[in-house]
Design a binder for these strands. Sequence first.
DNA 1: AGTAGCCAGTTACCAATGGATACTATCGGC
DNA 2: GCCGATAGTATCCATTGGTAACTGGCTACT
Lengths: 125, 125
Amino acid sequence: MVTNEQYARGDLFNPQCGTRVVLDRIGDKWTALAVLLLQHGPLRFTELRDGIGSVAPKVLTQTLRRLERDGLVTREVFAEVPPRVVYTLTPMGSSLIKPLTAVSEWAEEHIVAINHAQAEYDAGV
Amino acid sequence: MVTNEQYARGDLFNPQCGTRVVLDRIGDKWTALAVLLLQHGPLRFTELRDGIGSVAPKVLTQTLRRLERDGLVTREVFAEVPPRVVYTLTPMGSSLIKPLTAVSEWAEEHIVAINHAQAEYDAGV
DNA sequence: AGTAGCCAGTTACCAATGGATACTATCGGC
DNA sequence: GCCGATAGTATCCATTGGTAACTGGCTACT
C-alpha cells in the first residue's frame, strides 16, 4: 500500500533523488573531512595528507580528483621545484561548509553519548 | 610551521576529534540514508530494504546493528508469525535529522550544478 | 499430508573500495 | 653525483559492500 505519507517522506525512496546521489558522493571515507579541512583556506597536498594523518596518498588523490570533478574544489599546479599543488574550495564547495558544520556540531555534542551507548550495547544490555 | 591559525581550524586534524569519529560512523554507504528514511516514523526491515532498493539484506542488517549499537535506533522484535521487526529512531537519532536535512537540502539545490561540473570535467575542459 | 509462502534475517562466495609501502620525476644544494 | 623535498603512481593486501541461495517457524492452500 502506497500512502500519501510515503510520498510525504520526500523521494528518498527513489535512488535518483539528489540527496541520495550526493550522499553517495560525499558519503565516502574522506570527502566530507577534506571539505571541512579546506574551509579556512587553501591547503597543499601534503598539508591535507599530514593533517588527516591516516590516509594513503593514492586515496587522497582519488578523493581530491572526485571533488574537483564535482566542482567543489579547484586544483592549482605551480610549476616549481619542488612542485606545489594547492587545493581550494570553489564557491559551491564553500556553500557545503554550513550543512557539514551542522553535522560536525551534532557530532561534537553527541560523541560522548554515542560512546556510552556503544559500551552499554557491548556489555550485552 | 604550526600556527594559531591551524589550531583555529578546530581539532579536525586530530583523528580522535568527535567530528572525525562520527563521520567515520555515519559516513558509510547507507547509514545517513537509513536515518533519513526513519525520520517520519518506524519502519520494518523490508520497508527499509525495498525502499532503498539496492541494498543487500546482509549490509542493511550491519547498518542497522551499528545504528542500534550507537544508540540512534531501537530494534523491536514482535514474536509473531511471520516475524515483525520495527526500527525506530531514538531521541538522539531524531536529533540527527536536522543536520542531515541541511545536507539533504544542499544536495537538492546543487545536484544539477554538480552534474554539470562533472560533464565539463569529463569533456576535458 | 504435502507444499508453498511470508519475514527477517544468515551463509558462502565474489567485486570494489580503501590502505601500506615502495617507487618516480624534477631540480637545487652539498 | 648524491640527497632531499613535493606530489603524486604502482603494486599488492585488507576491509567493506554486493549477489544469490538458504534457514526456521508458522500459516494457508490443495
